[in-house]
Amino acid sequence: MDAEGVDVVVLCGENNVAYATGYAAPSQEPARASATRTVALVTTTGVRLLTPAPLDFEDGARELAAAVSDYPGTLAIDQYPSMLVRSTLANRSPVDARPLLAAAKFVKTPDEVAALRKAQRINERAMDEVLPAVQPGVRDTDLSALFFRQIFEMGATGNTVDPIWNVVPMSLADAPFTFTGHLPFPLPAVGRVLEKGDVIFNDAGIDFNGWASDFGRTWYVGTDPDANQRSQFEHYLEIVAACLAAIKPGATAWDVAVAARDANGGERPWFPHLYLSHGIGTDSAELPFCGTDLGEEVESQVVLEAGTVLVLEPVVWEDGRGGYRAEEVVVVTEDGCEPLTDYPHAPYG
């Protein structure tokens, strides 16, 4: 805040509130979350939390404006929950709080890394129970049921994303339309019955006291991988190894994307509508992003630091023969990086 010359930061986004104050909102659908949101007013000397009446209405917007009026000076805000909030704060000429937040979130403290690790462990132990159930005849939503049972028994404070058990075709010609011509990953679970030989790209994320996990693996339904699939997995490991070698303090987000591309014969090994890698914290995806359509100009300005956390999610794809995708969460250390993910790649080990 000092660096940006800001006197008070108004945080309306729940992940930003969780980051700045430790207050984690309950896990709920967006409209309920919006109507019941807790707002944080952050100054260099303290934090004030308030839960105003719904901000879509005059009462709530006025309540928030009145609280903000206790804090003179330059005001930064992360978002306007409604146009009423925009107009009631107009006289303060708010500046954008997001650059300030992004800079702060970019480096995780040891406690924050520990919180991420805890969320990741719950997610992984839940998958221990799901994996044996990945069999012909099971519905994708049955896997979601098993996953939910496990995470909540282990004390997860929320499920962040509908668990994904995306059956992928061997050929893009058999996939739904996309603007990019690549797979439309991720598709939600719809009650599809898994069949022998299906390949699923799995993706899940939970919340533990405001901190996110991210888990991804490729699983084969009722069969062992064939020689092609094995070589895809080996190639996946090569790409990950190249990324890990590139990740260290001083490297840029673009460097990581280039390392992955170089390890894949010059073709980008990720979904073109997504990215090779994203950060994670109280948001399930946050800076740094590597390999987005923002490209070199933007991503070469993003410099990794010790404490930056990345989720690598490369995709190996051989059209006609399917592919392999998984996710590896890593934290940048003083001289490289170390994994937060601690999970095997079944059935390879």
């Binding site: 709920q28 659908e29 939910f148 049972r149 909540f152 679970a189």
Partner: peptide, 23 residues
């Protein structure tokens, strides 16, 4: 409480509905 949440969310998804409006 965790156990109640766990069996409820499991039952909801077993019905084919994977999204809680609130947990």
């Amino acid at each position: 409480d965790n156990g109640v949440k766990a069996v409820a969310m499991e039952a909801m998804a077993a019905e084919g509905t994977t999204t809680a409006a609130f947990e």
